[in-house]
Design a protein around this nucleic acid. Structure first.
Lengths: 193, 193
DNA sequence: CTCTCTTGTCTAGCGGTGCTAGGATCGAAT
DNA sequence: ATTCGATCCTAGCACCGCTAGACAAGAGAG
């Protein structure tokens, strides 16, 4: 059975290669440039090979999104734990970590929240990395929801605000110079002691 | 010169038809379904006619976005003026009007803020309708920015939060049931007196 | 009223997209 | 050594945004 195992390993390795290459290409030239042909060429296989791993381009985007969600959760947890134990500082650190991640990995961020990766959100069958990313936000934000406010609901609102800032800034809808002040204002107003 | 005038009128009329049809098609079946072929067929002209009015599909999206911006500005102004003179009620009305517009005109909203319509934002050469839409938000939100907070900056933050709620809810990233409570929380926290 | 000549529109086509059918090849098992 | 199944590639489909060039209709000149 060793032969079969080796094949499965190689297959898994190639799948990782596809996802990593798609991500790399997307970050370099944008998702529009991630065509099945170009992607196939970069991994040095023919197009149909992609379809033996993923149903289609959408699923590849979804795979990148999941990878990104795991990373974002880690980044957020790292930043907030470094700012312990002050809840307010933790929230500020979370906001910065989130926006920083979005800015440094725009293509991944798009895969997660702008594009259709065929993923289920906020449901029972939501993939674990997505649930975990939300949980990472909840851990810190739940502390400052304020009296009588549901932590999950507060997290959703705070997250939405961050998402708005991230997307509008990057799309040139808001001038980037004052980004820092906007974050500060947001944290000051939304976080309750 | 009457002949020329008539031609110009007909041309302008056809341009309106193109924009209206693109918008209609986008609302019915999504922007992906708005192809130059389908659009041409619907207006009962051939494809190249589109390119005698617009540089390309991007400009058509931009035209829909401008139309939407003008409408949104009107809707927001209408809603806030009806809630005068209480500033807090005006803000709540604004938030609801904004989100309502986004939900009822998803394709137009996408044209304005999600897709690339080739428009300049937050710059000197930003088209008037966009500036005016922002001004409509500023008029009401500036009142509740709070002491020492720049009204424009506050408006940007509030807007970003609304934008986040609008997009995340519609894309299924947040459960729609509690949308109302999220808005309420947002208004309560961000608006100062 | 006829003849240009401009103006406007259409047909046809280019290079690209996501995706797939069917044939060739390679390697494991007999 | 030979079979046979898994694996991969070539070739192609229908569609995309966009454009060159043929063609027809109508305004203006004589």
């Amino acid at each position: 059975m060793s032969v079969q195992e080796r094949k499965e390993r190689e297959r898994a390795e190639r799948e990782r290669l596809i996802v990593a290459t798609a991500r790399e290409l997307a970050e370099q030239q944008g998702w529009d440039a991630v065509t099945t042909r170009r992607l196939a060429e970069r991994i040095e296989y023919s197009q149909p090979v992609l379809y033996s791993h993923f149903r289609g381009k959408r699923e590849i985007i979804g795979a990148v999104a999941l990878e990104g969600a795991a990373e974002m959760a880690a980044v957020v947890r790292e930043a907030t734990s470094a700012a312990a134990p002050d809840p307010r500082a933790r929230v500020a650190a979370l906001a910065h970590a989130y926006l920083d991640f979005a800015q440094r990995n725009p293509a991944v961020y798009d895969a997660m929240f702008q594009l259709d990766g065929g993923l289920a959100f906020a449901q029972d069958d939501t993939p674990q990395p997505l649930k975990d990313a939300f949980a990472a936000l909840l851990d810190t934000l739940g502390e400052v929801a304020g009296d009588g406010v549901h932590p999950g609901l507060f997290t959703e609102v705070f997250w939405a605000a961050l998402h708005g800032l991230a997307t509008l800034t990057r799309a040139g809808r808001q001038p980037p110079e004052l980004a820092e002040q906007r974050v500060e204002l947001l944290v000051n107003r939304l976080a309750e002691v």
